[in-house]
Amino acid sequence: MKNNKRYKLIILFCLCFLAVANVNAQSDWQVPAKDNENLSPFLFDDDMILEGRVAYENSCTSCHGTPGQDDFTPMSPPPGDPAAEQFQAQSDGSLFYKIKMGRASMPKFEDAFADDELWNIVAYIRSFNENYKQQLPNMEGVEIPVYAMKLSFDQNVDKLVVKVLAEELPQAEVSVSAYVMGTFGKHLLGKAQTNELGIAYVDVDPALPGDAEGKVNVLVKATKEFARAKVQQDLAIAMPTEIHSAIEGRHIWSTDRMAPIWLKITFFVSVFGVWFALLFIVFGLRNIKRAREES
């Protein structure tokens, strides 16, 4: 009996240890103090949660599972369920930092998502916490400029030229990131800072294929402190490319309608030829019958 109790104790101890170790794995991850205190400049509203959900389902579900279901993939260290307490105990800034920077088997999403999209994901994760109360940055006395952007392309140096203005005045030291919109995600062309003329240059690979006119859909984001702006438009910055259908021409593998002509002719000429001869013989059998009547 006593022995039994002892075993139970040992098991309990082990379990406790494991749990602590698990938490440790999470808390192991040192987030710089400044990032830890980082706050979302956006209010986590339903729109953000919805967008965060789409992003989460595309990029996070495969490891973290559906929040609240505890169905994350068993890995080492365990990815954990974002709805779980140890997840929710972290600050917004910490979650944001971890998603953005990644570590070991947690991918780095810095290039995949812009900051506002990362906050969408944080908003979605927070939506599973009933007790969560969003802490917002102190905005009092902060003047937030409204940016306008003008995009152009300098063919001579293959550079995308981004001019950032606020009330007609050029804005310096604005971080600009430019993306090409692909079918399934956006490809980072590059990041740059505006100069004192409010202009940032982003390199464009001249080999990048565009449509027949060389146009691609470009997304440019500009951020500086709380000020943010984005613009998305078709720009002729890429190589004009003629797009071919994958099934052009006549091949053995084409559909019957697009079969090679030589094959169609050969097939039908031989089949109909032989059957013509056969029908000739079958009809000719009447001659045998007639040959009797003549005699």
Binding site: V274, A277, L278, I281, G284, L285, N287, I288, K289, A291, R292, E293, E294, S295
Partner: peptide
């Protein structure tokens, strides 16, 4: 087919048979 062993019937039969014999080789 009203066969009564006339020479013409034999001629026709041989002709058709021959055609078939040639046709059947490639087929």
């Amino acid at each position: 087919l009203g066969w009564n062993n006339t020479a013409k019937q034999f001629r026709l039969m041989n002709r058709y048979t021959r055609m078939l014999l040639i046709l059947i080789i490639p087929i």
